[in-house]
Design a protein around this nucleic acid. Structure first.
Lengths: 195, 195, 195, 195
DNA sequence: GATGAATGAGCCTTCATTCAT
DNA sequence: GATGAATGAAGGCTCATTCAT
């Protein structure tokens, strides 16, 4: 039973990321519930509000970012330039853009007040910053020392840039110019190496 | 009152572009009406549906693209590389991203169906294509001959790329990483020149 | 909750017929929802559009027409003239006029278009025709043979005539001349017997 | 100029009756203005509110009823039965049903208050009563004495019955059973003669 | 625990009526 | 006087969220 519930929860998070990535951040939660094979009330049991779901998707993503950064750190010891390219490629595959819409939302102001929490330290954007951005900043610093990455680049810049590039597009645009995403990715990779 | 009305209409189009650029394509039309200093019904008198308003903004933008391309053509005679940079800079200022959401919408589906509706060329995206993309394609070809722009680049790619870069971001993201837009623009310009 | 919902759904249909009969076919759906003791969204969950609600009321009415015709067929074996009078009286009580406004609406135009939409037989009027008008035509034919009903009368004529007679009137008219409905009914009954 | 304005006013009244008869009582006033070839503001100059326009149409109709009654009185001297049939036929042609929707409206409550008028003596329905119903009652009494019309029939009943019969129907119904109006008229005429 | 149903708030759109030229 | 434009109020419909089984 416990395992069942956990699997269900994971399924919802996964479906949510896919659907956000495909249809943008304003999809009806009922669509996510349906795609996950559960009722809307079950989704709400797991994620009491829309923001909680977004936060969970972000957390999931943060973990994957951390994994990628960790791996890149190892690779950087041997070949800094290759490590950077591998990292960006992996981050691009995460479809960070799926959350570009959701990230803007101020998370749970009510709960914050209840907890007496800081002004907006718990926004989804901040949730990425705390664990993942620190690790990323650290890695970038290493690679900058190795001259593999241009100076003056923050980890947050990288995340936002990749999210911008992978942000979901309406179908007609995606279909009319499908190669643009790859072109922008290539351009960004090249740019981060120069300077 | 004719002059008054025309001025009001222009104001609505201008405000619509600004607000689309700031808050995305799904803002309440009432917000645009309020920002334009008119009642909601006045907006509807001028633009019977949301798509009509988007179409008007697109038309306006197309005209500005055409102007920019025209000017770039002149400049290209003297200095192809400078012309390309000037052009991209001007296009970036147009905030093409303001319409990224709107562009996905199929314009006037009812009429399309009435006409028997295959992939009728009247989508907002297509409306840009007809006049502006042709001009842009022509200019790109010239600059490619002059080795100022990489090969294999279509005008449509350029528009979509710039729209992606200038697409409206939720306020927290914009504020947290305000320099990313410029970085992506720089990266893209550099990339289009290589190859 | 299944049983609850079904009862609620029935209540909405019943209230809708009453309110259509009293206030015409263009009442606010919110009024029907309120009279049924539910919120507007509950009405919409059960009947996704105004036409779906009308269709449900029509279906309900068709069933009652079929019942009345069935009973009249039995009675006709013994006394054709009495059967006809009983039938008309029962049909008058159904307040067919409640749907005169709604019947004019083309049901689900979108789907019709999607299907390629000629004069697709799914209009509310046609929905009455298929089951109920056939039964009524059959009965009328029998009674015509028995000389209880005049020749040249179609079941559809009867339905439309009774709907015209029982059509909702604005309160001042209803109150100023309340006996007119009965007079018209009497006149129509007499007329259908002559000829 | 005066003649021009008067003609315009007449045109509006005539168009209003036709459009009410065809499309029911809830048409947009702008449609009537357009059909009359004037701007909406001109319609409002002539008829300060929707009810004023309805009242004008009613007044026009009352005059025609009076004319018909007057003529019937003359004919009744020679042949009471023929006079009655002629009268009903003429009244049917007036399309009294065009105003069935409008008649229910309480006319100008504000003005009534201003004039200190009786409770609702100025309702459109009452406006028919005062001049036309009196004349009609008088004629009916004469014909009843001549045994040409059944007893117990008020002029108001006749007007409401004919309005019910000639009330505008939605196009699909009208087209599906176009003969019903004539059938009901025939039935009503026959019924008024028996008794 | 899981589910489907219920709800209210919000945006879109139309129309009677008023205003400025 | 005649006109087109402006407006607010009202109804249609959707969706995040809550409730009862």
């Amino acid at each position: 039973m416990r395992a069942d519930a956990a699997r269900r929860r994971e399924a919802i998070i996964t479906q949510a990321r896919h659907i956000f990535a495909e249809r943008g951040g304003d999809v009806a939660l009922e669509a996510i519930a349906a795609a996950s094979g559960v009722g809307i009330a079950t989704l709400y049991r797991n994620f009491p509000s829309r923001e909680d779901l977004i936060a969970a998707v972000v957390d999931d993503m943060v973990q994957q970012i951390l994994d990628a950064v960790e791996e890149a750190k190892t690779e950087a010891v041997e070949d800094a330039a290759a490590a950077w390219e591998t990292l960006l490629t992996r981050l691009l595959d995460l479809e960070l853009g799926a959350l570009t819409d959701g990230l803007g939302v101020q998370a749970r102001p009510a709960s914050n007040v209840a907890r007496g929490g800081g002004s907006d330290a718990a926004s989804p954007l901040a949730r990425i910053q705390q664990p993942a951005l620190d690790a990323l900043d650290e890695l970038v610093a290493v690679l900058q020392d190795a001259k593999a990455v241009r100076g003056g680049l923050r980890g947050l810049d990288v995340i936002v840039a990749l999210a911008t590039i992978t942000r979901p597009q309406a179908a007609p645009i995606r279909e009319a110019a499908p190669e643009v995403r790859a072109q922008l990715a290539e351009a960004y990779l090249a740019w981060t190496r120069t300077g």
